[in-house]
């Protein structure tokens, strides 16, 4: 693994692997979509409306998975001074924010016909929304500090504080929701999902993950090259100053 801590080695590896990840990710999403939308039987209660879970659930999983990976990347940058940790966390953040927004949007689309409302202040919905705000704050901090090394240091601290706080926020929101209304309609332990419904979901989730890694490689390469460009430009300006 240390070999690929060198940005140049990583660039070479990422360049070779990116098409494979994208190809496999898109293929799996295509297969999952087909299985989920066409092959899987309609739900006995929700009919065809349940099929949105094939977009919604993987997105919600990814929203947490991406933040977790950002925290691991930030920690490796913080503890081991891993040169690619900050790059990886920065590159992952917008993707994570989009997954979060996608989970919220599809959830609202599903909620309107099923619950009769676009939005309820349910514990899980609320913590997902707060997660989106935390993603936005992280991205905003990167954008606000001009100097990349300093931005990287501050952003990794924020990412780790956020990682500690996200579970606390989640549980406090759960506490709040149960305090206000004893209803837990949305946590009914429905019937065990049959394999014909579950398989497409797992394929979709895997496809999302693989696609995300491809996207991460592209964004990390862009970031590394952008930093080199910046250094070159500063050197040129320095030479003429």
């Amino acid at each position: 693994m240390l070999h690929y801590a060198n940005p140049q080695n990583f660039l070479n590896l990422a360049r070779r692997l990116t098409p494979w990840f994208f190809g496999a990710g898109i293929a799996m999403i295509a297969v999952g979509t087909y299985l989920g939308l066409v092959i899987a039987p309609p739900d006995y209660q929700q009919g065809d409306a349940f099929r949105i879970i094939y977009v919604h659930v993987p997105a919600a999983w990814m929203s947490l998975f991406v933040y977790g990976s950002m925290a691991v990347a930030s920690a490796s940058a913080f503890i081991f001074k891993h040169p690619l940790g900050d790059v990886a966390a920065k590159a992952a953040a917008p993707a994570g924010a989009v997954f979060t927004a996608l989970a919220l949007a599809t959830g609202m689309l599903w909620g309107k016909p099923m619950w009769g409302t676009w939005w309820v202040w349910d514990g899980r919905l609320t913590s997902e929304l707060i997660l989106l705000f935390i993603y936005i704050a992280y991205i905003a901090l990167w954008d606000a500090i001009d100097e990349p090394t300093r931005a990287a240091r501050m952003a990794r601290i924020l990412c780790l504080v956020g990682a500690i706080n996200v579970p606390i926020i989640h549980f406090s929101v759960e506490w709040w929701q149960t305090l206000h209304q004893g209803v837990t309609v949305f946590r009914t332990d429905g019937p065990q999902m049959p394999a014909s419904m579950l398989t497409p979901l797992l394929i979709m989730a895997l496809g999302y993950t693989v696609f995300f890694v491809g996207l991460l490689f592209v964004r990390m390469r862009t970031e590394i090259l952008a930093r080199r460009l910046r250094t070159l430009r500063l050197n040129i300006e320095g030479a003429f100053a």
């Binding site: 705000f133 935390i134 905003a140 500090i145 924020l158 606390i168 926020i169 929101v173 709040w176």
Partner: peptide
């Protein structure tokens, strides 16, 4: 501390701090 040295840091500060303070608001 994290947002010190940022131009127009006040808005960023609010964006960073308010979501993290949600548990205090709830309890």
């Amino acid at each position: 501390a994290v947002s010190a040295g940022v131009r127009r840091g006040g808005v960023l500060l609010a964006l960073i701090v308010l979501p993290l303070n949600i548990p205090a608001l709830i309890f």
